[in-house]
Computed example of a mutant assay.
Amino acid sequence: MTQAFDAAMHAFAPALPLAVGLSGGADSTALLLACARRWPGQVQAIHVHHGLQAAADGFEQHCAALCNHLNVPLRVARLDARPGPGQSPEDAARQARYKAFEALALSSKEFLAIKTIAIAHHADDQVETLLLALSRGAGVAGLAAMPAQWERGGVVWQRPLLQVRGADIRAWLQHQGQAWVEDPTNADERYTRNRIRAQLLPALEAAFPAFRDTFARSAANAAQAAELLAELAREDAATVGVPPRISALQRLSRARQANVLRHWLRESHQTTPSAAQLAELLGQVGACTTRGHRLHIKVGRGHVVRSGQTLDWRGPEPPSR
């Protein structure tokens, strides 16, 4: 059972120096241990103390002891990852964690200048992400799940274990005689991801033993489709303009209008319309045939409005004092 982990690590060829996101759990502990052995002196660890549970101090202590044993520098970010209004706890923690990783990788001068950050998500995590996306009615971008590699802020991020089962990672760690910590919230089935892990993955294993591989292929196909849609959106944006001209939008098919409008709102205003909001917006664009036709539609945190011959987006009003 350790062969899959060994094969994944053998194929992992990051630009060095390398930082490993270390939570203290089995997956990140295994990833750090394997990387530290393969590239001694070129690896450091980044641990995020989320401040969300009493066990967090124990996670940090485990990480410090492990890094001391491996002679790996450890950098710790302490933050408040409590969710905002309407935000899920998992999403709040994830966003805060990635921001902390990026800040630590780019800011500190006394540590190695990091070129790659490795994250220990594995095949089961990928399946859970895909199932969550399906449950929310996501489009192809959501169904693409987690990429194996991307770049942000001048640093390459990689997930070298996406083809490895969680059970295989634990088997490898046990073979090494290495301990890890268990996050007590992982057993809390109030969280959707935990219910998927506890209830759906065993059923999928029984019904479709190869589901991890087939789901991964579906996610890869969705990622390719999302890339093509993004290319088309950029081409259409060059034609309709930024902000989009209504008459130019009307010359596109409804599907291409939807695609370029999502692109415009995401890239220019960092907001994403719901399916209902986008449908209403498309209907209004189609009906916009007279000079006096007004348009004012709630989208994301603000409103899409008509401004002369183009669309515009107005963000939320600042709170009154």
Rank of each mutant, 00 (worst) to 15 (best):
A4W: 01
D6M: 08
M9A: 08
H10A: 15
A11M: 05
A15G: 13
G21Q: 03
L22G: 02
D27G: 08
L32K: 04
A34E: 05
A36L: 05
R37N: 14
I46W: 01
H47Y: 04
V48L: 04
L52F: 06
A54C: 04
Q61Y: 04
C67W: 00
V72D: 00
P73V: 05
R78I: 09
L79N: 03
L79T: 09
R82W: 11
P83Y: 04
G84A: 09
P85D: 10
E90N: 09
A92N: 08
A92M: 08
A93P: 01
A96D: 01
R97S: 00
Y98W: 14
K99C: 10
K99G: 14
F101V: 02
F101S: 00
A105T: 02
F111W: 13
L112R: 08
K115W: 09
T116G: 09
I117F: 01
I117D: 00
H121Y: 10
H121W: 05
L131W: 02
L132E: 09
G137R: 01
G137D: 04
G139I: 02
A141Q: 05
A141T: 09
G142S: 05
L143M: 13
G153F: 07
V156Y: 02
W157T: 01
W157H: 11
W157S: 03
W157D: 05
R159A: 06
P160C: 06
R165I: 05
R165F: 03
A171K: 08
W172Y: 09
L173S: 03
L173A: 11
H175T: 14
Q178T: 10
A179T: 13
P184D: 05
N186D: 15
D188R: 05
E189N: 10
R190W: 07
N194G: 03
I196Y: 01
R197F: 03
L200M: 14
L204H: 02
F211L: 07
F211K: 06
R217F: 14
S218K: 07
A220N: 02
A220M: 09
A225P: 09
A225V: 09
A225W: 06
A226R: 00
A226T: 09
E227M: 14
E227F: 10
E227T: 10
E227Q: 12
A233D: 02
R234G: 15
A237E: 06
A237H: 07
A237K: 03
V242M: 15
V242W: 14
P243M: 12
P244G: 07
R245K: 08
S247T: 15
A248W: 00
L249P: 03
Q250D: 10
R251A: 15
R256P: 03
R262W: 02
R262I: 08
H263Q: 11
H263V: 13
L265A: 06
R266S: 13
E267D: 11
E267Y: 15
S268Y: 07
H269S: 06
S274E: 10
S274A: 14
A275E: 15
E280D: 14
L282H: 05
L282T: 02
L282Q: 03
G283Y: 01
G283A: 10
G286L: 07
T290W: 09
L295N: 04
I297C: 11
K298P: 12
R301E: 11
H303L: 11
V304E: 00
V305G: 01
R314H: 09
G315Q: 04
E317R: 12
P319K: 07
R321F: 12
